[in-house]
């Protein structure tokens, strides 16, 4: 879906997250893992959430699913505020959101057969007959490219790519409308990654799914996502349509992420410009703009004040005092 369609109206919004925040208290102090994060996912749209390890992207996913409780903000799914639901309604709502985790070697129970892995969510949530359940399991496995001959096997009998297909089939078991993909290809080979990404695109088209795609690899984001949210140390620093953001990034952090991707072309070797330093400790975040210690453009203003996320048209916004787009 294009960005115009996204702007066409809030009624197309499937999920609206506003001012999410999550604090973790540790022995050494309080960590603000997610700080005032807001975004919209439209029907049939893929929104990518990108950033380095520890920036809070997985925490956002877990709060949406209510696998962990958030400390602030609201989540509206399909027009209903998730906080206002009765426990019964909340359970029904949960079926509409599902997740595929990063590592299919860890997310599948090694002692369960494929039939039971995919069938368990159906069994626990709906009182369908055994025959109906079998029929659904077969259908879901088929949709991810696995046949009935795989039903009675255990996870260890499959390759990484096939395991991730099983994980996708399990996530689809309850016919969700929003699928959260938490780095679904990070543990896979590049050649297998291509197969899984193509499968996800295909499923989206045939089932009209919405995706929240979490990754730190911008090259895969480009081939699957419509819009992108760039996160750094718990905050969103840039958002917009993928094609615009990747060709003309407005935030130096987005630029730096793009420049750290190794290009599969030896003649472009010198273009690899890794970002210096590492993500600072969230226990003791830098003053002002949290990105300033690693930023090539940081000025005295960046050390003192924290920029807010400002919209500048075309569905884009960025949190930076410098105007990278004008400078280009």
């Amino acid at each position: 879906m294009t960005d115009q369609a996204h702007l066409a109206g809030a009624d197309r919004a499937l999920l609206t997250a506003a001012n999410l925040s999550k604090l973790y208290s540790t022995r050494h102090g309080v960590i603000q893992a997610v700080d005032d994060v807001s975004f919209v996912i439209s029907r049939g749209e893929t929104v990518a959430l990108v950033g380095e390890s520890g920036c809070g992207k997985s925490t956002v996913a877990l709060t949406l699913l209510r696998l962990i409780d958030r400390d602030g903000g609201t989540v509206v799914f399909d027009g209903r505020d998730l906080d206002q639901l009765t426990p019964r309604e909340a359970n029904a709502m949960r079926r509409q959101l599902s997740i595929v985790f990063q590592n299919p070697y860890a997310s599948l129970n090694p002692r369960m057969r494929v039939r039971d892995i995919v069938g368990e969510p159906i069994h626990t949530t709906s009182g369908v007959s055994r025959g109906e359940r079998e029929e659904r399991i077969t259908r879901h496995l088929l949709s991810v490219g696995l046949g009935p001959e795989h039903m009675d096997r255990f996870p260890h009998e499959f390759s990484g790519g096939q395991r991730q297909r099983i994980a996708v089939a399990r996530a689809l078991a309850l016919e969700p409308r929003l699928l959260i993909l938490d780095e679904p290809t990070a543990a896979l080979d590049v050649s297998v990654q291509a197969q899984v990404l193509n499968l996800l695109r295909e499923l989206q088209m045939s089932k009209g799914l919405s995706y929240l795609y979490i990754s730190h690899d911008l090259a895969t984001v480009e081939c699957i996502a419509d819009r992108v949210l760039v996160m750094y140390l718990g905050r969103i620093v840039e958002t917009g349509p993928v094609s615009d953001v990747f060709t003309h990034p407005a935030h130096p952090y987005t630029r730096a992420l793009l420049d750290s991707i190794p290009v599969p072309d030896p003649s472009q070797r010198e273009r690899l410009q890794p970002l210096r330093g590492e993500v600072p400790s969230p226990l003791n975040p830098p003053s002002g703009c949290v990105f300033h210690p690693r930023c090539s453009r940081a000025s005295s203003r960046c050390l003192q004040a924290s920029p807010t996320l400002e919209s500048f048209g075309n569905g884009r916004s960025a949190a930076c005092f410098h105007d990278l787009i004008k400078e280009q």
Binding site: Q193, A194, N198, L218, E222
Partner: peptide
């Protein structure tokens, strides 16, 4: 085939090439 499976920036939202079958 292997060289084509690598996603690279600038291609836009498209399907990636895959090597059919398994190792």
């Amino acid at each position: 085939k292997l060289m084509l499976t690598a996603p690279r920036l600038g291609r836009g939202k498209t399907d990636l090439d895959v090597i059919p079958g398994q190792v």
